[in-house]
Design a protein around this nucleic acid. Structure first.
Lengths: 338, 338
DNA sequence: ACTCGTCTTTGAATCGTTTCATTTGTTACG
DNA sequence: CGTAACAAATGAAACGATTCAAAGACGAGT
């Protein structure tokens, strides 16, 4: 009564065979008008709802796509995730989002989970070394697309943004506006961050007398940025950098909070500040934040497209799509120092 | 070879019965040390991974909890979602997040999906009228907990925050600091927004000469806020409100962007501004934003707890937990007008 | 009346687990 | 030596859908 009705119950109720009910659901054209009506009526009366587990078991595959991101709280990733979800929905699939929190063991946990769920495919911003697992998945027919990370196209496809170029753009901009003593804030143990740093260092190397100091942050969050900012405020003015490049906007906003809190440091006059990602909140910061914009929607959409491609070609051909980031100048890097 | 191994393959390989393999996985104590080792070795060699669909089919229920939110891009909801995920993980469950985007049909879509997945339970911030569906789910043994919405405890449990009180606190604060002509920005068709408005109106009614104008926004996003803000900037100074209460922080940040863009309006001198939710970005806004803080972690955690309670008592008893919001004063409402 | 072709319907087999009543094996004790 | 008691291993049945070869229904053509 109150329990869920199965296809068998529907068949009994409508006085047809189970196969017929299944046909009504999956191949309506094969069933005569009269029978179809009767079956649909029974379905409605019993409140029948398909059991997805049974379907999947039979089909051998789910309609689910796994997505593992570094931090869902980060607007960059939530934007990518949303774009991926929309694209997947259009294809009749569902996206399951897992948050690794930049922790390799949580990442592994989600990979296990997704493998147990027999996902159609996997989108992942990797933390740990996932190469071997990706190989295993590919052998078993589960294509993987790296997100925000360049892949070896022998192995799998990827969508990414040229992080080194982004880092170069940011540092170049700071140098172009007259700053020489730069600081880089971030966690270089993360590959994207390391690349951005490398790009920045390349720009610095091009200008004589320019330098870049590395400030390792404890994470990539607003809180971590605030800690780094506090450290800067405590320094004597001459020891402070003239410009700070943060490896993402959350960090930059945190640094900005610390710097502006005590009003002893002015942005951009004393210290210029630039972030990365151009999240929606960058423009409405205390001092509107310059940043490097990444095409998040395109990333999410393309990731799903590449996955579909792999499914079509049986996971034999891989493609690496690389987008180019864009400099967005706002007040936080305006004018020049002195 | 490259295909996935089943429990049967493992059994053959380890020369035991399928039931034994299952026991190794689920009741290791029932199996002798020697057999266990042999089976585990086979599992490793074949790279066996449990098929979750088959497990669920047999079990009749999944380890999944569905969560439907109004907007994952909103830090309020992403924070609630994260807390719920953490709490669920501790219980060995997984949370599937669906974004209704405040659209009843997308909401219905996700409810269908979750029902097909035979979720353990459902957490939902409802848009449309979901009462009937919740009843159906309950009859079928799927408990529901309303999130950020007060429930009729005859029907289901809920976790919410006293929105009317929050609205009252916000408006009272504006009035206490001397403002009289208030404006409320939001979409009152959303219940939470309507309650906040009601609370604000109550506060206004207590002060003679005070008034509140309602500015209906097209959504609850930064963009919608910017549109409303543009409208305010265009008004002559005497037609502008002295204080603006936005039904969430995203709107408030949008309004702030418009107002500060042209520098003709000063915050808080000309117009005081207060938001709602106290998202992380409120503090780092152009003018640090006053807001009403909601206990998001507690909401998410408690939602999962209530779900667990319902599972224990068979969905017979329901409980409505209501949290109290808190005023957070920052610069955007400092001082007094004139 | 018979055959052929087309359209519809049937129901057993299958997917990969878990469960549980049985069987088999081992040890202890009278 | 017989058997009770317990531990370990077995394998068929069940979960609920989809698939597909086969059977059934019906009309048209000869």
């Amino acid at each position: 009564m109150s329990q869920t009705a199965s296809i068998k119950d529907v068949a009994t109720h409508a006085q047809v065979a189970v196969g017929t009910v299944s046909n009504v659901l999956n191949y309506p054209d094969r069933v005569s008008q009269r029978t179809k009506e009767r079956v649909l009526k029974s379905i409605a009366e019993l409140g029948f709802v398909r059991n997805d587990a049974a379907r999947q078991l039979r089909a051998g595959q789910s309609r689910t796509i796994g997505l593992i991101v570094l931090d869902v709280g980060n607007p960059f990733f939530s934007s990518v995730a949303r774009a991926a979800e929309d694209a997947a929905t259009a294809l009749g699939s569902v996206v399951l989002v897992g948050d690794s929190g930049q922790d390799a063991s949580r990442e592994a946990h989600y990979m296990d989970l997704f493998q147990e769920q027999r996902v159609q495919g996997l989108l992942i911003s990797p933390v740990g070394d996932v190469g071997a697992r990706i190989d295993t998945l590919r052998e078993r027919g589960v294509p993987t697309v790296l997100v925000d990370e360049l892949a070896d196209t022998e192995r799998c496809s990827s969508v990414s943004v040229d992080d080194q170029e982004g880092g170069y753009l940011a540092a170049k901009h700071l140098l172009d506006t007259g700053r020489r003593r730069l600081a880089f804030v971030g966690t270089p143990s993360i590959r994207q961050v390391a690349s951005r740093l490398k790009g920045a260092q390349r720009a610095v190397a091009e200008v004589s007398g320019a330098s870049v100091e590395i400030l390792d942050s404890a994470g990539q969050t607003v809180l971590a940025g605030r800690q780094v900012g506090n450290g800067l405020v405590e320094r004597s003015p001459e020891e402070r950098p003239e410009a700070v490049f943060c490896s993402n906007d959350l960090l930059a906003l945190g640094v900005m909070q610390s710097l502006t809190m005590l009003r002893t440091v002015r942005i951009p006059e004393d210290i210029a500040l630039i972030g990365y990602d151009d999240i929606d909140f960058a423009i409405s910061a205390v001092v509107p934040l310059s940043s490097i914009r990444q095409p998040t929607e395109a990333l999410g959409r393309t990731a799903i497209e590449l996955l579909a491609e792999e499914q079509d070609n049986g996971g034999t051909k891989h493609r690496a799509v690389v987008f180019t980031p864009e400099l967005v100048v706002r007040q936080s890097t305006a004018g020049s120092p002195n």
